[in-house]
Structure formats: C-alpha cells, structure tokens
Design a protein around this nucleic acid. Structure first.
Lengths: 137, 137
DNA sequence: ATAGGTGCAAAACTTTTGCGTCAAG
DNA sequence: CTTGACGCAAAAGTTTTGCACCTAT
C-alpha cells in the first residue's frame, strides 16, 4: 500500500519531457500557447493539443502548477515549490515570491465554515517595475 | 482636480442596476453566464453581451470585483470589501474570508523586485464542507 | 497484442466586437 | 442632436475531443 498516491502514472515521452524542461527553464508562468511556441523550437511537429494534454497530465501529477491566476488564459508554472505570486495589473506578468518571505498564516477556524485547507497562496496585485517606469505614458 | 478618479463614469441603466443588484444579492461568485441566468429572470430580453459589457464597466468602476481565480471561466464578486477567498479544489466553489481574520502581511521589499503593491489577496485551497462530506464517493 | 500517446481537424466553450437602433440628457 | 447603451449576430480566442495512426511495453 503506497500512501501518497496522489501522483498519477504516465510515460515520460519525448514531448512530455521537452514541455517539462522548457517550463522548468523559465520563471515567466507561460500560457499554454507560449509553452507551445517554446517547445516548437525543439519539436517542430508537436501539436497544441498535445501541449494542453501534457500540461494537464503534468499538473495532475504535481510536476507543474496550473495557476489560478489571470483572466482568460490559464498560466502554468514549472516551479512547484511553495511560493506566492505578484501580478502586474497593467501587463499581466507574474513574479514569484519565495514562501519563506511569508509563512502560512493562522486562520481562525470560525472564519472558514468547515473548509479543509490544504494549501494557501498569497496573490499580490500592483505594478511591476517595468510598467511603473512607463506609467506616465 | 479630483484625486481618486479611478472610478469611471457611467449611466445607471436598468440592465446595469439589475446586474449589480443580483450580484450583490449572492455570495456565490458567479460566472458571467450565471449572472446572465440570474438577471434573465427579471429582464428576459437582456443579452449576454450586455452582461459582459456591464460586468466590465462595473468592475472598472470598482462596483464589483473581477476575480483572478478559477481556470477557464471568470468569476465576479459583488462584495468589494477587503476579503480573501478559499476555493474548493473539487467543486470549484469559492467562499469568502473577511479580511480582518487576516491582516496585510509585511513582505520584505527585496523579495518583490521593485513591485509596487496595491492590493493583496489570500487564496486558500482545500475542500469545502460539502465536498468533504462526499469525498468518500 | 495492448494501453497509452500523438497529430490533425473539428467542436465546444468563453469573451469580445460590429452594427443598426434606442433612450436619456 | 449627441452620446452612451442595448440586442443581436458574428468573430475571435481558448481549451477540449474524436479519430486514425504510432510506439513502447
């Protein structure tokens, strides 16, 4: 009996491997489409559907994170360590904040109506350095 | 010169009013489509496009919140007071946590790379009471 | 052999836009 | 009269699915 069998099984195909590698390589929280473009440089014949399917598989396996951020387009994160996000209201970019900069808060249990908390993420909103510079435009 | 002119101007039309009222009425963080269904009971001829346009207008005016939560479908919140969200990983429902249960954290400035923080929101993940009960299924 | 993966194309779903008309100031 | 808003339909954008073929067990 294996405890911790959250992670589902899958074969590490060439496509899967490249997607994971590319996603681990960046800190930019790309959308599926952006991952597609990145991966396409190495596997020109890969299809967008495969990227979607594999991002799904990898996130189900806990290898990547599907971010619950952003408006219309989903973003993925190759860094599964605990961390938070700051999102720029202007350009939509997301930067990471290491979890140790900010430890798990204590939430009074009466505030959460029987909710069983498994994870937390702090979502900061504001303007990134770059957009702050060009704000005057 | 008026400081605090974030809020844009608009006419409070019948449609707008009903959308706002319905959104204020619930705590369920409905999607545009759900708002449409709610509003349609009172204004059967309203179009989905109008709902989208008005949710956009109202959120630009700060009357409602566009949530940065959830995967594919955007959710809206009629409660603009400071509060956090706990999202159920199973059913996707979102419950509110009053901000006073959890004050604004102090983030070390070196962790945020020149980011100018205007807002923060804590996003908890877990299982809601209801899904916890039916988890065994 | 078989189970899972892939590419392609089509479908489904969500959100936005163009346009002619309407309503309020 | 002018401006903003509406309804409708079409378009655009994002994600999922069906299917035939492939490829590692």
């Amino acid at each position: 009996m294996n405890m911790e069998s959250d992670k589902q099984q899958f074969r590490m195909t060439r496509q899967r491997k490249v997607i994971l590698e590319e996603l681990r390589k960046v800190t930019s929280h790309p959308t599926a489409d952006q991952v597609y473009e990145m991966v396409r440089k190495r596997l020109p014949r890969i299809s967008l559907a495969t990227v979607y399917r594999n991002l799904e598989t990898l996130s189900a396996a806990g290898e990547v994170l599907k971010l619950e951020v952003s408006g219309t387009q989903r973003r993925y994160d190759g860094d599964t360590s605990e961390h938070h996000h700051a999102r720029c209201a202007m350009c939509g970019s997301v930067i990471d904040i290491p979890a140790k900069a900010f430890p798990m808060p204590k939430i009074p249990s009466e505030a959460i109506e029987g909710f069983d908390i498994s994870g937390y993420r702090l979502e900061l909103t504001g303007l990134c350095q770059n957009c702050r510079a060009t704000k005057a435009v």
